[in-house]
């Protein structure tokens, strides 16, 4: 483990996580690197997210926020380092000599069941109604009875305020409604971790609030969340910790009040002054 990794982990501990020390963190990234060709998108990123913690990742576009989230459910392979989710290496298994071997497709799929992912562009299934979007994975992956899956889907859509939109196709929904269906779809697999990749960036301003409201509620129910976002208000009021990224590195991290109001790093100050006005 690199020194930077240790430092960030110590950071996390000193930032007032009150959970028992021996609890397995939901996310543990240690010295993760990611190259796209010659582009170094993640440069020695270490991050620990405890059970029930809400971490908001901020930073300019191209800073690696999205890639970091995508590595957390193995939509993106990592080039170096280790990424544990719920105590298991995601996407890989470690050989006796320490090299990473690809995990089997079945095992990767199984690992992903526990990780909800909400995309910037929703990625709803356009050929399925809202309720079918939510019920599909429980039926096909969890082998749930159709009626049971639909009942659960209806409940989830109700929870995100869309009980009257069950039988509607995605293209008949507004952006905010689509993103709420997408959140319900992810929750249907009963994940222990929810990843949000700029969930409100593709929305018209008047629809941002309804999506953030759903996320706020989810956080208050104790869901472990990692959110890449530009919504500083959300970060301030919901996040337990804010992580600032730039050029593939974690620049600094801390409780929102501290990081957003008294950033230590010049790059954080520069970024915040741009976003906050």
């Amino acid at each position: 483990m690199s020194e930077a990794g240790v430092a960030t982990e110590l950071d996390a501990v000193s930032n007032g996580i009150t959970h028992s020390a021996e609890a397995t963190p939901v996310v543990r990234a240690v010295a993760v690197h990611k190259w796209f060709g010659r582009l170094h998108v993640l440069d020695d990123v270490s991050l620990t997210v405890a059970q029930g913690e809400v971490v908001v990742v901020i930073g300019p576009s191209g800073s690696g926020k999205t890639t970091l989230l995508r590595c957390m459910n193995h939509l993106e392979r990592i080039s170096d380092g280790r990424m544990w989710i719920n105590g298991h290496l995601i996407g890989y298994r470690e050989a006796a000599d320490g090299r990473l071997l690809d995990e089997s497709e079945a095992e990767i799929a199984r690992q992903r069941e526990a990780i909800g992912f909400v995309f910037q562009h929703f990625n709803l299934f356009p050929h399925l109604r809202a309720i079918e979007n939510v019920a599909l994975a429980p039926i096909k992956v969890r082998k749930l009875e159709r009626d049971q899956a639909r009942a659960q889907a209806r409940q989830l859509l109700c929870r995100v305020g869309l009980e009257d939109k069950c039988e509607v196709y995605p293209r008949q929904l507004s952006g905010g409604q689509r993103q709420r269906v997408a959140i319900a779809r992810a929750l249907a697999m009963k994940p222990s971790l929810m990843l949000f990749d700029e969930p409100t960036s593709a929305l018209d301003p008047e629809m941002v609030g309804e999506v953030l409201e759903v996320m706020r509620e989810l956080a208050s129910e104790g869901m472990t969340m990692v959110v890449a976002s530009h919504e500083m208000g959300f970060a301030r009021s919901v996040a337990d910790r804010v992580v600032m990224m730039a050029e593939g590195r974690i620049v600094e991290s801390g409780p929102p009040g501290e990081l957003l109001d008294r950033p230590r790093e010049q790059r954080t100050q520069a970024f915040l002054s741009k976003v906050l006005h």
Binding site: I115, F125, V141, M189
Partner: peptide, 27 residues
């Protein structure tokens, strides 16, 4: 069919074959 469709299916725990059959092929 947008690559995001396969990603969304796989992120829900579907295997490649299931994503193809239930999400990509119908579209």
């Amino acid at each position: 069919v947008d690559a995001g469709q396969t990603e969304a299916a796989e992120a829900l725990g579907m295997r490649g074959r299931q994503a193809m059959r239930h999400v990509v092929l119908p579209q």
